[in-house]
Design a protein around this nucleic acid. Structure first.
Lengths: 207, 207
DNA sequence: TCTGTAGTCGACCACGTTGGTCTAAAGTTC
DNA sequence: GAACTTTAGACCAACGTGGTCGACTACAGA
């Protein structure tokens, strides 16, 4: 919708955030346009001036989120790094940066991916599959398996490392719950994270 | 409510399952008593004949779930097993059994724990804290730290093992999504799980 | 200064759903 | 068949829904 995109970027962002949050928390069906406009601080009329209806808004959000995650996260990961742990380390940094920049997008995508309460128009479906494929490549393509211990199954080691990284992130997120992400010193957490990575290296790589 | 507890156990179970599912999926506020009765196949009147109102039902479910999880899961874990991985292994088996027996209870508890959209009467609050404390003890009390490698921080190793076990469980759950749990042969999955445990042992214990 | 246009708001609409009540019928037990 | 319990769902007022519309403002060009 050009109407929406010509808007003052600050207001635009506020509307996007409100809408993303509402859909993230409630899914498509139970999300309320009333709550969105209230949260965004705009009149009801405006939302339907920018977007022709609820579904239109929803699809716009999906496209926006897909673009954001691909452009600001997935495509920035160095796919030439063949060391699995180093690659995850780089990915974690990029993801964290993107997440600070636009927290709601990730929440929205999580809910979207595991509910799918509305089927997509083909062009979005296609882009969504592209994202999945790119996410897969990020984890498994061009990894140097020779770095791993010989006495453990490489795929299982992959998974354990992945789960470790995910687990730390989840754990951290919970510990930081409620704190204002923007005014926070992340350095100690990064250090802690690197210690975990060292342990993983020590445990799953040949030394 | 004695009215409810004198009911035919089968109908009782059906009502419990419907209600647990509804609250699990929607939280207290957005859960609908209409959907509950429809799903349970009873008339609207009956729900309010058994429970005096929505809140009463909700608190009954919490108490029921706390009891179930404590009695059928936490208190069955062998707290005398000092080997961390063996303890988790035992816990996983018991949890899986409990989860098959009453899937909704666990979903309900997850939603309940991370939303808390209603504050509890004191006696439930107390029992809830007991559960948390018991869950903590299950993981950290009486573990033999001497089994771990000397060159890694034990607490971090704890976490990585925990995240590995959780990760596998989550991964499995996703792979099995939609399949009827009851008519499924779990043996191969257990074997796979044990392989992961072996790797963890090989990686984080002294050998 | 007038007029047209783009932007903005929120009252309002018809309607569906909410938690909860009540009546009347159907069982059940003597 | 009386006395009692159990059941279903029509019904209630209150509220929330996605979406519309007319009134109003801001500002451009004449």
């Amino acid at each position: 919708m050009e109407k929406f995109e010509n808007l003052d970027p600050q207001k635009q962002q506020k509307i996007l955030e409100s809408a993303l949050m509402e859909f993230a928390e409630n899914g498509y069906g139970k999300a309320s346009t009333n709550r969105i406009v209230k949260q965004a601080g705009i009149g009801k009329g405006m939302l339907f001036y920018y977007f022709k209806n609820k579904k239109d808004l929803y699809e716009y959000l999906i496209e926006y989120s897909l673009n954001f995650i691909i452009d600001e996260y997935l495509s920035l990961v160095d796919i030439n790094e063949t060391d699995f742990i180093k690659r995850l380390k780089g990915a974690a940094q990029i993801k964290m940066k993107a997440q600070l920049e636009n927290e709601q997008v990730f929440n929205f995508m999580v809910t979207f991916m595991l509910t799918k309460d509305l089927d997509l128009p083909p062009h979005l479906q296609k882009r969504y599959e592209q994202l999945q494929q790119q996410g897969y490549a990020l984890l498994y393509e061009g990894i140097d398996k020779k770095l791993f211990r010989k006495d453990v199954d490489v795929d299982k080691a992959f998974n354990l490392i992945r789960w470790g990284v995910d687990g730390y992130q989840r754990d951290l997120l919970q510990r930081l719950q409620g704190k204002k992400m923007t005014e926070l010193d992340f350095a100690p957490y990064w250090d802690e994270f690197y210690e975990y990575l060292d342990i993983l290296k020590k445990s799953f790589y040949t030394n």
